[in-house]
């Protein structure tokens, strides 16, 4: 592929069972395009954790994915409550998720740390009461 491929997804905030659909679709697309499995897994996990976060904390949002030959950009934007303290939110094990989310297998305080772990670049823009935007980049050649 020589040009960029742009994909857009709406992440519904009212149905936890659908969280991950967008990440799954991107994973399949990358596979179809022939990207290597390590890159695909990094993109899939980073985006999946982001999707879960949007559903848990922000009532859903939007995902924009740009696939380039040498990198993949993912922008996850929500209009949720924002993150009061990003450095705390980046700490493994720190979570504001309610108990009902933990009973679903998430909310262990690993969401943002996992996104950072699996991305090559992560930028977070957040404003209290307005929302959060995650800019995730995964490089194809390392």
């Amino acid at each position: 592929m020589s040009e960029s491929i742009n994909l857009k997804y709406i992440v519904p905030g009212d149905d936890f069972t659908r969280a991950g659909e967008a990440s799954g679709a991107v994973k399949r697309k990358l596979k179809q395009l022939g990207f290597n499995s390590d890159v695909i897994r990094k993109v899939a996990i980073a985006m999946y954790e982001g999707e879960i976060n949007m559903v848990i904390h922000a009532g859903g949002g939007e995902a924009d994915v740009e696939i380039l030959p040498d990198k993949i950009h993912i922008i996850l934007a929500d209009q949720g409550p924002g993150i009061p303290d990003i450095s705390l939110a980046m700490k493994e094990g720190w979570s504001t998720a309610p108990d009902n989310v933990r009973s679903l297998g998430f909310g262990a305080g690993m969401g943002l740390p996992n996104i950072k772990k699996y991305s090559d670049e992560l930028k977070i823009e957040t404003e209290l009461g307005k929302g959060t935007k995650l800019f995730i980049t995964v490089n194809v050649s390392n």
Binding site: K27, G105, M110
Partner: peptide, 29 residues
């Protein structure tokens, strides 16, 4: 599932007592 996503490398089997579709999504990723 977040722990699975964080610590697991090239695993092929997931044992869990959690019972919802996110278990399959996690395995898929």
């Amino acid at each position: 599932m977040s722990d699975v996503l964080a610590f697991v490398k090239n695993q092929s089997v997931l044992l869990t007592g959690l019972n919802n579709p996110q278990v399959v999504r996690t395995a898929e990723m």
